[in-house]
Computed example of a mutant assay.
Amino acid sequence: MKIIRAKDYNDMSRKAANIISAQVILKPNSVLGLATGSSPIGIYEQLIKWYNKGDVNFGECTSFNLDEYRGLTADHDQSYHYFMHKNFFDAINIPAARINLPDGAQMDIEKECERYDKAIRAAGGIDLQLLGMGLNGHIGFNEPDESFSKGTHCVDLTESTIEANKRFFESADDVPRQAYTMGVQTIMLARKIIIIVSGENKAQILRDACFGPVTPMVPASILQLHTDVSVVADDAALSLCTEKELR
C-alpha cells in the first residue's frame, strides 16, 4: 500500500483526482470503477473542472459503478444512477453507452449479478477502481462477513450502513435493505485501486484496514494484498497511525 497524506478533504479530493486524470490521460480508453456517497463528490467536482478546461477527456472511457440499491429505479433521486449523472456523468463527455451500473430495478438477483460480471469481463476488466471505506470497513457494499465475496452479489445492508445512509432519505425506514455490489474478488482484479478516507471518525477503521490483520470482518483489509493500492487520506483519518507506520 502507498499512503498519500492530505491536509483535509479538499486536498484529499484533489490528490485522488490527480491519479484518476493521469490514468485517463495516459490511457484514454481506460475502464474506470467508480464509487458513490459523500466521499468522492470532491473528486468528481475537480475532474469536471479539469474537463471544462480541456485538461482531461473522458470520450473513450468506460465506467462501472461499484453498487446500486436493490429496489430503486434509475430515475429515483436516491439511486446511484441518479447520483452519478447529477454529480459527474452529465457534466463530462463519457458516452452513455459506456456507462454501467447494476440495475436496481432487476429483482432477479442471479440474472443481474451474472449480467454485470459478464459486462466487466467483456470490457477487459477494470483499469482503476475508486473506493471509499465505510465505518465498519466495508468497500462497495461488501459488509463484514465470515469470508470474502467473489463476484457481483446482493447483500443485506447492516444497521450501521443503513444508519450512515439514512441522511440521504426522509428516514431510516426509507433506506433500502438490500443492494447489488461488486464482489471483493472483482475489486481485487482491478489493475490499480485508489481508496479515499476522510475524517476522524474513520481513523480507527483506517488503521485496522491498513495495518491490522487481513480479515473479512474488515473487508478493506484485503487491499493490503493488492500490488497497486493508493490510500489517499486526510490528517484526521490518519490521526491514529504512527509515523513509523506511515513511512
Rank of each mutant, 00 (worst) to 15 (best):
P144S: 14
Q129S: 08
T161L: 10
Q129G: 07
I99N: 02
F168E: 12
D108Y: 04
F168Y: 15
A119G: 09
T161Q: 08
C154M: 11
C154Y: 05
K166Q: 15
H138Y: 01
Q106P: 07
I99P: 00
C113G: 10
F168G: 07
L128I: 02
K118G: 09
G151Q: 07
G125P: 00
D145R: 04
T152W: 12
A119R: 08
E110D: 14
L135G: 14
K118D: 15
G151R: 04
G104Y: 06
N165S: 06
R167S: 10
A123R: 01
N100V: 08
E112S: 08
I120W: 06
R167P: 03
G134I: 05
S149I: 01
A172C: 04
G137P: 00
S149C: 01
E110I: 13
S149V: 02
G124D: 06
S147Y: 12
I126E: 08
D127V: 03
A123L: 04
E143K: 01
I126D: 01
A172E: 08
G132D: 06
A123Y: 03
G132I: 01
G125C: 11
A122H: 10
E170I: 11
S147Q: 14
C154W: 05
D108M: 03
P102L: 11
D117Y: 12
R98Q: 15
H153W: 12
E114D: 15
A119W: 10
H153D: 10
A164H: 12
G125V: 12
F141W: 03
T152F: 07
M107Q: 11
L135Y: 09
K111R: 14
S149P: 00
I120P: 00
E159P: 00
P95W: 13
L157K: 02
A105C: 05
G137F: 02
L130V: 07
A164V: 04
G132A: 09
S171V: 08
D173W: 09
D173N: 15
